[in-house]
Design a protein around this nucleic acid. Structure first.
Lengths: 378, 378
DNA sequence: ATAGATTGTTAAACTGATTAAACAGTTAAC
DNA sequence: GTTAACTGTTTAATCAGTTTAACAATCTAT
């Protein structure tokens, strides 16, 4: 138990303060000297500006929208008034008449930790950055069953919340996607119904080929696979390339080499358990994502199998901070940030009617780290 | 190199298919039989509904808003027309006249991986869930320097994008926060300028006390601290309680026990390096968040110090999936999801004018796992 | 029977912008 | 010296709702 010294309790913690002083910049937040905003920031409308500038509201509107029919002189004069009054156009009114909201929605699957997920996070970063640059705001939604049942995803367009939608983490099982096919929408990192919906996804076939090449070159022949979500076309791509590449190497794939890991780390651990028990000779595991790979490694290490000495593991995603795992993970790098950028870019093009079909596939590459090694000869 | 068997190349991967068949539900997406939406979903307006129902648009509006001045009969009759026509009110028009957008913004700091961050993610989940229940949409923004310089954070209100804003991951160094003090805004998981801004945060003092109690009870006396962001009041709370609790236990805090870990895992590793070299007798480390704790453990383990046998480590946050780390992390659980819920709830109350001051503090608790143990006597 | 209160509905003003069409004032062409 | 073609600006309609005040119809109370 902590012994308490009388008279010392509740004393000011100087040392902490000292530490602070040395690191923190001086902080002064004096609210009395802050620029006094006009108390009720009385909404200034386009009419006020027009009156002040001695022109019609149409002129102000045209100045706002850089309409070339406005003369240089008027433009400058009106702009000056706009700036001096601190006028900012009400975008509800703008959207109401212009029919564009300048807002995009991102729909995520109803997973408990969808927002804390590195995979979605990386894509979201890309989307957010590009949306900002294109002058669009981002609305975030989770497609809970109730949400879909109530048709909220359709309301997004119908009630004019957004101009377009990006769907992340969905596959062909999510039939609500087809409700959106008549609106600007892009399915991110998957395909749907043989390409009925616009999409942008990573080249999972290329990634799988890169991973399998690596393992085969390291001499592995008994390679297990922890897959997930076989209803997802891109996930299926990996499975297919996996078997094809084995065949091409003259190896007959055993059914017992396959296990579903549900994209989670627990699932990955469970799958590793299953696979290693079904076939003691497996020397390598290809995993559908990094989380499962991590779970598998944890399971293996905890059960006395050394990674990579006894068994090699390859992941998919190349999630940040997993480079720091122990052993660090060999994985297929998916350009998730770029995927987000591309998806956002294409969606805006679609909204503006500049393209009428989006079907992009982004290249991957393999990142060799510590979780793979040459097969051990017994 | 993989040997290729002639005639076997590019064959269909039956095994993968079989695996699929067993796991996947049957997928049929027949687009010809999907309910044929009226080709041009010709915008239906309140006027169309009014005409069809033989009432004025005012009546339809009042039905929509459940105005009690409408008789039961009319309500039912109009509602039936609304349903049959599939009418959905344009929310731009609604917001324009009602002065409420039903949209909230979440502003995140300009960190590269803000969206992939477990800490923010957890809070965001809470916010998103509650916002949905309260009928509000969520806009997500990152406060890049340029963004602030251009006053986009003020535009959020002035241009009527949102009714209120939740600020995550900011502290007193972020002076732009004070620009928002005249609008509905809640600072999440921090305080600002002695409480000028509304806030909801976790009880970091309580958390620090719980962590220190634990370490002291385990017999540790030379306890180092990896802190971060001393400009953050809540971070300072931890530092202060750390020194106070040591003093109360009759231990004089050494300046050399403190190091800044910048809230990152690399920072945590670097700080662990620094601390263990400055004072070889340190037997425990208190870390300002889980990421730094993880980095510290990685550094220690890689440099031959066993955790917890040689040195105990306590984190802060209780981030998901870190329960699976090896060793699993003893940490202060912050109710981040609940924090998001509370913040959202309070913000909406503020917008509706039901409260005029928000200053909530949520309790924490310690989660004992494997990274701490009784001090080893030499 | 008539004034007063109650109830339900509607006309009209309002929210704050965009934009097509009209309209002056110049300049160019025949 | 008309007519035609441009320029730059304004008028007025429109986007799709909400809300206040007015109004007609019915019900009470005197």
């Amino acid at each position: 138990m902590a012994e308490k010294l009388k008279g010392e309790t509740r004393e000011s913690p100087d040392i902490a303060r000292t530490a602070l002083a040395s690191t923190a910049e001086p902080i002064q937040v004096n609210f009395n000297t802050l620029p006094a905003e006009e108390n009720p920031p009385d909404r200034i409308s386009i009419r006020d500006v027009a009156k002040q500038a001695g022109v019609s509201i149409a002129t102000v509107s045209m100045v706002l929208n850089q309409n070339p029919r406005i003369s240089r002189g008027t433009h400058v004069r009106v702009q000056r008034v706009i700036d001096s009054m601190g006028y900012r156009p009400n975008r509800l009114a703008q959207s109401l008449s212009s029919r564009y909201t300048q807002v995009l929605a991102v729909i995520l699957p109803p997973l408990r930790h969808a927002f804390a997920d590195a995979y979605f996070g990386e894509i979201l970063s890309g989307i957010s950055d590009r949306a900002g640059k294109l002058g669009h705001k981002l609305l975030i939604e989770q497609a809970k069953p109730q949400y879909i049942k109530e048709g909220k995803h359709i309301e997004l367009y119908e009630r004019r919340f957004v101009d377009g939608v990006l769907c992340l983490g969905f596959n062909e099982k999510h039939t609500f996607l087809s409700d959106l096919r008549q609106y600007p929408m892009i399915l991110v990192d998957n395909r749907f119904g043989d390409g009925v919906l616009d999409y942008v996804h990573c080249d999972y076939r290329m990634g799988a080929k890169q991973a399998m090449n690596c393992l085969l070159q390291l001499g592995h022949r008994n390679i297990g696979m922890i897959y997930a979500a076989p209803e997802s076309p891109t996930a299926r791509d990996v499975l297919e390339v996996y078997t094809t590449e084995l065949r091409n190497a003259g190896i007959e794939v055993k059914e017992s080499w396959l296990a579903d890991g549900c994209f989670t780390d627990e699932g990955g651990a469970a799958a590793a358990n299953l696979l290693t028990h079904r076939d003691k000779d497996i020397t390598a595991l290809l995993c559908g994502n990094d989380k499962m790979a991590l779970g598998a490694i944890r399971y293996l290490v905890e059960h006395g199998r050394k990674v990579p000495q006894d068994i090699s593991v390859v992941g998919f995603d190349d999630i940040q901070h997993l480079a720091y795992a122990n052993p660090s993970l060999t994985t297929v790098h998916l350009p998730l940030y770029e995927l987000g950028v591309a998806a956002c870019e294409r969606l805006v093009s679609r909204i503006r009617g500049k393209v009428d079909r989006v079907a992009d596939v982004l290249p991957t590459h393999l990142v060799l780290r510590e979780s793979t090694s040459i097969v051990r000869t017994r």
